[in-house]
Amino acid sequence: MDTLTISGSPHVFGGQSVKKIMYGVVIAMIPAMLVSLYFFGFGALRVILVSVVSCLIFEYLIQKHLMKLEPTINDGSAVVTGILLAFNLPSNLPVWIILVGALVAIGIGKMSFGGLGKNPFNPALVGRVFLLISFPVQMTSWPVPKPVFSSALTDAVTGPTPLGLIKDGLKLGKTVPEIMSDPTFPDYIQTLIGNHGGSLGEMSAIALILGGIYMLIRKIITWEIPVAYIGSVVIFTGIFWLIDPTYYADPLFHLLTGGMMLGVFFMATDMVSSPMSRTGQLIYGVGCGVLTILIRIWGAYPEGVSFAILIMNAFVPLLNKYIKPKRFGEVVKHG
């Protein structure tokens, strides 16, 4: 007889693994990736490849030589970080800046805290925000989308994002409807499919929503954070829009632009840096939404998703400590 194995129950397992979850996220990002390839062509491919490969290499090197651990790069988490980082970069970014971003994301954002599962902040966002503050010019000159099959524009043309257009227009004393009625301003359909200036992945709201729905169905993410995030954005911007539609953009516009969908479905829901309990997740989502809009309307940057999520990440340990799930048998009910 072979040697019997002795272990505590349970003896069967659900078959979930970190790898499956991470590659599930990668699959969910494919639509947005295809859209970016369509609009930015080779530039997008270059950014994504450089980002993913460098994230993997940095993770391997740090685990192997600095932490003296068995490298775990095939668990897919570095791939997710790499793609997310690429999604947050403009397609014409020089390679060396991408490398710096990947090093900061993996090295400082993730490994300095002890690796997968121990980072308080979303690594990709750490990398992105580092680049945004360090290289503001390169990070905010977005090439105008040039669909692969059209020959109208050249790579060299750059332009601001819709949110940037509004912020600049308001500074010049224009009203929001005036800015939006400009023929070069993308309409809702264009923002939905992604035909406007911006980072790689934040372009197409519809592709990101598709990915989000896929993750919800596969139960990779739960509904609490996206719903709370979107809900709070709609309510918050709705109030301002109703007060003064000439100065504040409408909720739908806010939802479809500035990487909102990318943040809602892919970055705020990052399980490592989001709260554990359902109530905590709702509070976190609302916090993200409110902070995003605060930054967008009154902040110096036209976009606020990255900052809002990073700030809320910092509150997660607090939420985990004080917001507890409802225990069984806490409220005695007599039926």
């Binding site: 970190v18 399980m271 554990m276 309990s277 225990r327």
Partner: peptide, 15 residues
């Protein structure tokens, strides 16, 4: 490593 996915919290029948 624990990835803090909170699935264990979600499935705990005792909350």
């Amino acid at each position: 490593n624990c990835i803090r996915c909170a699935r264990c919290i979600g499935v705990c029948p005792m909350g």
